[in-house]
Design a protein around this nucleic acid. Structure first.
Lengths: 345, 345
DNA sequence: CTGTTAGCGCTTTCAT
DNA sequence: ATGAAAGCGCTAACAG
């Protein structure tokens, strides 16, 4: 529990910051009166108000929010967003949605990364709770979030994003993953496809499991049952999506269409398809830059909406910590741009 | 100066958080001893240490960093990154670099957006300073940063990113903008091009001015002086990059190569080129997803390095606020992928 | 090795 | 309308 203090040094400021008392001294009033002025209280004479404001400006006074928050029971106006991999543009867009929504409520966002290491999740979260963040938004990555049990009672709401929590009752906002792939597969089936492949990794992720489920379900509805032959869900570090595609195309009865489970897989699949097979239909999960310029059909959604919704949820939880957990699904939609409509058998 | 407090409500926690005194009471020691244990001081008997730790666990004690920081002179371990447009993937990559570097020093990053409104910059920054952020990283957007004058003396270092500050002496980290476009243009010239266009908007931005400068300089070196005919630097809300390209191609002597000044322009140019002219050479500034899959040559750089460098600078400033401002340039490099090498006259 | 006192900057009583 | 005192949770400085 005892975290080592930050290793950064401490250069003493050349000039100390002014306090309420300093301003009061200069203005010839008490600290409390200055406080009243700063907080905008009405019970202050206009002239003293002016004198105080002038003194504050002279001394470059800036209220110390730290002290205020401490006085108020250590309730801050910062909310943490804990994320595995900051470099993933998807999470950036989510963070943007969060930040914007929080700002509407006068809240700031602290962004913290676990570098995709499950072990560091707890450490990072504990550090944030020590900072007394007002609430916690997180993409769960550790296999267990039970250590957050009790935070709700202590007044800190937790909302999970993109994946539900494990061993913790908490609100969550996730994508309509299975609906998304199901819609893509159904569209391909309507065009006559039957041999439809699904390429994605890593397999273990909740989102990917859900997307796989939607893929299987849609094929089952169409009477295709032996779907595992077309599934390429590698573990991290295994075959790349591009390799998977080469593999698939080398089959005796190669797929006529491929669905990618995420943007990383899309990249690999498109690379491989451009090399060899231009007539295989393709639909990716996750939209990406210039996908429209190149006519790539995708299952898209609004990552910012994911963030916005999570932020709304967590803000409403600040007022009311009671009640059962809420689970929201963000819809996806198929955007046909050509690649999913070509090469129908 | 008096900001309205956050509008969010305040639900009293069902169970108050334990304090040092609470833990001490349960363990039969004073608060100070608990503090010593929590801070990892050696001068505590192993058995009292155990008793204290057990009590802390029982009460779910979490040190209040707010109080600690206040005691320590209100020096926090959070650094703010103020950014105009969070939805721009470029800044996200920068933020990722910042976060990672700060984490190495035990510092947290607060991300705050000004929504690209110059007027809100000061408001946002003031709020952050009230939170006593340890340092300030910012992409300047307002036309003046003189309001930050004096922050250095008060102990808060400021580092500007992507653009230098105006009316403020501060460290900065920017891209080698003019070198970047110059290198692109020189490569085109080596391939025989002379009629080279530059498409970019909005024109007013520092980065774009610099990129334009590099473009002009490289052409001048090659003896091409009447470059303005090929320049298409629209103001925001003016003609789109795609329109500019159509315009250029309709000229009596259309350009044989086009350089785009940023990723937004690249998108527009590529759209237009795919419609009509597949044989015009193209080089974009800023790399983007799948650019390699589609063989697009670009002037690239590492946005994360921009962030990392800025964070390093600001961390070093925490130890030493004196000395002249430092200005670092992050190099760019031309990545030939085909589009810049085609259509040579 | 452990406890007491004081105070960081602010705001909520309660007086005046 | 203004001020004095107390205390939020914590930790230096000094006892003991």
């Amino acid at each position: 529990m005892p975290e080592a203090p930050p290793a950064v040094g401490l250069a003493a400021p050349a000039q100390p910051r002014a306090t309420l008392a300093d301003v009061g001294r200069l203005a010839g009033v008490s600290a409390k009166t200055v406080s009243r002025v700063v907080l905008g209280s009405s019970s202050v004479t206009p002239e003293t108000r002016d004198r105080v404001l002038r003194a504050a400006r002279t001394l470059r006074f800036r209220p110390n929010h730290l002290a205020r928050d401490l006085r108020y029971g250590s309730v801050t106006n910062t909310v943490a967003f804990v994320i595995g991999d900051l470099t993933n543009p998807f999470y950036f867009a989510v963070a943007a949605g969060i930040e914007r929504e929080l700002a509407r409520h006068g809240l700031l966002m602290i962004l913290a990364s676990t570098d995709d290491e499950p072990e560091s999740e707890k450490r990072v979260v504990e550090a944030l709770l020590q900072q007394r963040v007002r609430a916690l938004l997180m993409v769960p990555i550790a296999s267990d979030q039970s250590y957050l049990e009790g935070e709700r009672q202590l007044g800190t709401p937790v909302v999970c994003i993109d994946r539900p929590a494990t061993n913790l009752i908490a609100d969550s906002v996730v994508l309509a993953n299975s609906d998304g792939t199901a819609e893509a597969v159904r569209a391909l089936i309507r065009l006559g496809h039957r041999r439809i492949a699904f390429v994605c990794s890593p397999a273990a992720l909740f989102t990917h499991q859900e997307r796989l489920r939607g893929y299987r379900q849609a094929l089952r509805e169409a009477g295709v049952t032996d779907t595992t032959r077309w599934e390429r869900l590698e573990e991290a570090g295994g075959a790349s999506a591009a390799d998977s595609v080469r593999d698939l195309l080398a089959m005796a009865d190669p797929p006529t269409a491929i669905v990618a489970g995420n943007n990383r897989a899309s990249s690999g699949v498109l690379h491989a398809l451009r090399e060899s097979a231009d007539d295989v239909a393709f639909i990716g999960f996750d939209d990406f830059e210039l996908a429209d310029a190149y006519g790539i059909s995708v299952v898209a959604y609004d990552p910012a909406e994911l963030g916005r919704t999570a932020a709304q949820l967590v803000v409403s939880r600040m007022d009311d910590l009671t009640g059962p957990p809420r689970h929201v699904e963000i819809p996806t939609r198929l955007i046909p741009r050509g690649s999913g409509e070509r090469g129908a058998p």
